[in-house]
Simulated scan of single mutants.
Amino acid sequence: MDVVRRLREIVASGAIGDVRAVWCRHFVGNGGDYYFKDWHAERARVGSLLLQKGAHDIDVIHWIAGAYTERVVGMGDLMVFDKVTSRRDNSDRLLRDWFSHDNWPPEDQIDLNPTIDVEDISMIQMRLSNGVLASYQQCHFTPDYWRNYTVIGTRGRAENFGDAEGGVVRVWNRRHDYQERGDLEFPIAGDAAGHGEADQLTMAEFLRFVADGGSTETSPVAARQAVATGITAAESLREGSVPITIAPLPPALQHYFDNHQVPA
């Protein structure tokens, strides 16, 4: 997504100094329709929405900060959707059959999954291997649907407003009181309908790698580390918010992917 690339470029340029903290707030306004009317609502099938939904943003946090999570603490709850009494087995329908922005407020949702036991609000704290501190918050009963990243460095901070075409990334890089528009502003480009051309770029890189080999911009290690963080955060959440260390990747596998999947 262009918003992610833009934030990474700002960090790489040195405009905000060395990154020391990354925060992400994910307002999942469509959560009631996306995750609580089918199998996503069941722990036995999805594990948690910190995995199913949060792994993407954890991956972004890692990429922007330049390191992976070493230790994580999770906290969350099922606060709203378990109290909705309208339930239905929707296995004979698809998302397009029930999705509507008119499904509001959350307490008035209809046809939720018969079983709901995943959290509808979660938050995690992370310590990365390079010392960066990060946080991720996810809520499925907000009215709006977008994600906000804040990246704080030793010489400034960057934050996005909107995460698709029409949004902007703003940078504050000198000292002052409240200033709404910051000191620098960068437009967010890409596909206004969704992933900011990310799907096309991802598939193009994948097909090029399959056909020709070579390096890739990121690697399966990044995916593994994001997934491991989401799974471990949910474990922490459900065990009383105890800090848990992420299990490391075996060195041989780390080397294999660092070498772009070419056997030693």
Score class of each variant (00 low, 15 high):
H176Q: 07
T85H: 14
R181N: 13
G153Q: 03
M203R: 15
G194M: 11
E165N: 12
I116A: 00
L207Y: 08
D199F: 15
T150P: 01
F186G: 01
R208E: 10
D212G: 06
I152F: 05
Y149A: 01
D120M: 04
S129Y: 05
L94M: 15
G162W: 03
L133T: 04
I116N: 00
L201C: 06
V169L: 06
P106K: 01
D212K: 08
R93W: 14
E107N: 12
A164D: 13
V84T: 06
A192W: 12
Q200K: 12
R93A: 10
F206H: 08
F209M: 05
V169T: 09
A134E: 08
N103D: 15
N90C: 06
A204T: 07
P105V: 09
G196R: 00
I116L: 00
R127I: 12
E185M: 11
G131C: 08
S122Y: 00
L133H: 10
Q200C: 04
I121T: 15
D108N: 15
Y145I: 03
R155I: 08
E197M: 12
A211F: 00
G131P: 12
D120Y: 03
E180S: 13
R87C: 13
R208I: 01
M203F: 15
D102A: 15
R96T: 13
L95S: 08
H176I: 01
P105G: 11
F99R: 13
S129H: 13
L207T: 11
G194L: 08
S135L: 01
Y178A: 10
F209R: 08
L112V: 03
E159K: 12
D183A: 04
R208N: 10
R181I: 07
C139I: 08
N113L: 09
F186D: 03
Q137D: 08
G182N: 09
P106W: 00
T85G: 13
F186T: 02
P187F: 04
H101I: 13
D111W: 00
I124R: 01
G166L: 11
E119D: 14
N103G: 14
E180C: 11
R93D: 10
L112K: 03
G190F: 02
F99M: 13
W98C: 04
A204Q: 12
F99S: 11
G167T: 02
M203L: 15
S91W: 14
W98R: 01
H176G: 10
N173T: 05
T142H: 07
S122R: 01
R127N: 13
A134N: 06
E119H: 14
M123V: 07
S86E: 14
D108M: 12
L112E: 00
T142V: 06
F141A: 09
L201T: 05
F141D: 05
D120S: 06
F141E: 04
H140P: 03
I121Q: 12
A192C: 09
V210H: 06
R181C: 07
N148Y: 01
W98Q: 03
F209T: 03
V210G: 10
R155S: 13
M126C: 08
E165L: 14
A158T: 00
F186Y: 10
E159H: 10
D111L: 00
I124V: 13
D163W: 04
R170Q: 09
G194E: 14
G190L: 02
G153T: 01
F161P: 05
V168G: 06
G213R: 00
T115C: 08
I121H: 11
S100P: 14
Q109M: 10
R174T: 05
S129R: 15
H140T: 02
G167W: 02
V171G: 04
R88H: 12
G162H: 03
